[in-house]
Design a protein around this nucleic acid. Structure first.
Lengths: 332, 332
DNA sequence: TTGAAAGCGCTAACAC
DNA sequence: GTGTTAGCGCTTTCAA
């Protein structure tokens, strides 16, 4: 089946292609009867405008690039859901890119994004730092960052203040003299972890206390779990904060192996709330970061950027709530 | 910064745009010194070929559309990882589409796909049935289905024989006289569940036994869990098969509420293996469906379809293994 | 209100 | 080995 073009429709309807273009774009300067004529031709031929050609002619593609770390869908899944829902509303397509560790790979990804001439790029990525962004900025892409607080003429961001969340939680524990607080490393999210550490440290400093511990672990679940099993043989904490649910689970399981009961002897709280938090036993207390909203808002901001609407604020902070479940005892 | 085009490069290098086109496409009929000259111009100007224009000229976009159900990333995450890895190798971009229940929405998605002039579409979707596919076929899109067994001139598929998996598991239990087998419904994956039921029923039929139960449940985790809590008050099973890990967790938690111990009094096995299966306690036994491979193979097949390579087989079955963990007792 | 024609950036004959 | 030119399918001035 030969692809039907705007010419075919024009022919069929006995009008010029300019007229067809006008009706498919809903321009009001078309007489009703010719509009109908064209519509019928479109219908009859099953014509669908070629978005590629439109993209060339208009110099915009109504697609945006989304960049997330490879294998991160447990964390980014909800974000993507939010993103796509809003993208649908504004009729944007989403091209999905994932990045691995290598700087080479990242540059290749950026190169591909630039070649694809998307209208903007949304990034959820702890590691895509300012240097890499500059390449994107050279080409004047509107950029929305998810998770990192940052902005300038072409960059906006949507995030949750994890430093504050970490501070709040830690402070609540210090207030009741539960002073042995530890944060478990998350190698995949160095920025988030650095924020958490900063917040906890601030709480300690303000309380004039010491004893905060940062526990470095291997990079995957299996070895983290093994490591923690050993770690808990001679370490005790009142509260352990983790970034992801998987690390909280590793912690709880490792503690359990050492006959440390959660939450009685050691409380565990993680930062990211997934549906598994409520499914596992003990149910995981967590900061509920509004992932879906993070994605939805990011996409909404992007549409504003693209339509040159004024943004009253380019750094949008979303609030979290604390959801205490079974793995911890203190309410905030 | 004005977008630099192939003309600018041609000017800078004092050659025609055809020559520039040749070097960026790596055609061998360019003299070395002019190639170098052009490369330098490209470098100097920071030129990146416009994929949109290439798409128009070549009548292909080297992008493929991926369609998955909305909010399915827990299940499709791994598939997408595999898909993207292979897509990178062959330099294809992936446009992500999600579908919700409504038939209208689905048609809109298909419409958008057609407009976007992707080179092919890969679908993981229990509900996108033959009727909807026909629209795509009208436009001669190569299609690769993940999860469903189906094929014709333009359709290929990659799947795991869930019917057989379900049969195997059920048979193993019937063989040792554990005859009270139940399958928990999964409203989001009616096709998969129907296959599972079929397999279990076949095992029962062959063994000339009765007692297979299909348990219908509400659609979300929370209400499923509540429902199952009630259900287990007056129902006992030797083995419960579920599709997703979340349903297995709901089952285990509900059983536990009724003081039914897993796996001693009731064994639980699910079909899809996620990383959480090994993290929760008891660890979930499961059929390990090779999700990553499903995605990777699907994309590989797609490249073959697009390059007109002959496919010896258009229905590719991947094999599963059974991973017994703590929630069940019998090895297969 | 409609049509003619230039242009968006690139590829691929075809000619030189 | 390199240049010229006609598209690819659409939008958008500018005229009519």
């Amino acid at each position: 089946m030969k692809r039907v073009t705007i010419y075919d429709v024009a022919n069929e309807a006995n009008v010029s292609l300019a007229t067809v273009s006008r009706v498919i774009n809903g321009l009001e300067i078309v007489r009703e009867d010719t509009r109908v004529k064209v519509q019928e031709a479109i219908e009859k031929l099953g014509y669908k405008p070629n978005a590629v050609a439109q993209g060339l002619a208009l110099q915009k593609t109504t697609t945006i690039a989304l960049v997330v770390p490879e294998a991160s869908f447990n964390v980014t899944g909800q974000i993507i859901n939010g993103l796509l829902d809003v993208a649908k509303i504004y009729k944007y397509s989403i091209v999905l890119h994932t990045t691995t560790e290598g700087i080479l790979e990242i540059n290749e990804t950026i190169e591909n994004i630039i070649k694809s001439r998307v209208d903007g790029v949304i990034i959820y990525n702890d590691k895509l730092l300012y240097d890499e962004l500059s390449e994107l900025k050279r080409y004047q892409y509107p950029i929305v960052l998810i998770g990192n607080k940052m902005s300038d003429e072409s960059i906006a961001s949507v995030f949750v203040d994890i430093e504050k969340a970490s501070y709040d939680v830690t402070k609540a524990y210090l207030d009741v003299e539960k002073n042995k607080v530890a944060i478990i490393e998350d190698r995949k999210n160095p920025f988030a972890i650095s924020q958490m550490v900063k917040g906890a440290q601030r709480a300690f400093d303000e309380a004039n206390k010491e004893g905060f511990t940062f526990v470095q672990i291997p990079s995957n679940y299996r070895s983290s779990y093994e490591f923690l099993k050993g770690y808990f043989k001679d370490h005790k904490h009142d509260l352990i904060l983790t970034h992801r649910d998987s690390q909280a689970l590793a912690t709880i399981n490792a503690a359990s192996e050492n006959n440390i009961t959660v939450p009685q002897e050691c409380e565990v709280i993680c930062m990211i709330d997934t549906k598994y938090n409520a499914m596992v036993r003990p149910q995981l207390s967590s900061i509920v970061i509004p992932s879906y909203d993070l994605g939805a808002v990011a996409m909404r901001i992007m549409t504003k950027l693209l339509h040159n609407e004024v943004l009253s604020e380019k750094e949008i902070e979303l609030s979290y709530v604390f959801n205490r479940r079974q793995s911890s005892l203190i309410n905030l």
